[in-house]
Amino acid sequence: MADEKQKAGSAEDSGGAAGKVTRRSFLSHLGAAGVAATASPLLAAAPAAAAMPEASEAASDAKIVGSVPVSLRVNGKVLKLQVDPRATLLDTLRESAGLTGTKKGCDHGQCGACTVHVNGRRVNSCLSFAVMHEGDEITTIEGIGQPGNLHPMQAAFVEHDGYQCGYCTSGQIMSAVALLKEPCGPTDADVKELMSGNICRCGAYPNIVAAVQQVRLRS
């Protein structure tokens, strides 16, 4: 019985506690129990749920002392959130919007893991506050493509093994997709220079460059 009470207590807390926890972010903890090359329903659940936030639910979240409302347009959907004015765009995406595909590697704009697109340009989402992006068009890795419907850059990363642990991968791909529209010379050295804001500690650099070059050649 005591256990039951404690569980109930913690569930109540969740209602009153966090503007940051929504049905979507709760779902995000379900995650991938297993891995298969074909997306099983379980595998598809987490990212798909995360990629399709519902504005109404986010708005219903409980208060954080000193929080302010912000309306973000993420992956084509409007997200109405209550956030701490000090919250970075990165932490807002991950902790409030349940979009955990964007990663935190340094919080200092030094590693590139948090790269997203703001109005079509790549930015380090750890270096700006969420409240600065009212009305901006934000795209995260979840909005680029999903298993079964991958963006050509995502597919090229799979084909060329452009990762190992996968943690910097979202940022690498967001940078690479933005690079396609940037002035960049044709050589591998040009791509390396423009991708050098994204650190891959596993050192999958040759494969990442191969993936980027393949997409550039085909497009």
Binding site: S28, H29, G31, A32, V35, A36, A37, A39, L43, A46, P47, A50, L99, T100, G101, T102, T140, I141, E142, I144, G145, Q146, P147, G148, L150, Q154, A155, F157, V158, D161, Y163, G166, T169, S170, I173
Partner: peptide
């Protein structure tokens, strides 16, 4: 086999 999850932000 875990590639599609890693490139789409779905790997937890």
């Amino acid at each position: 086999v875990d590639g599609p999850l890693k490139v789409s932000g779905g790997a937890m």
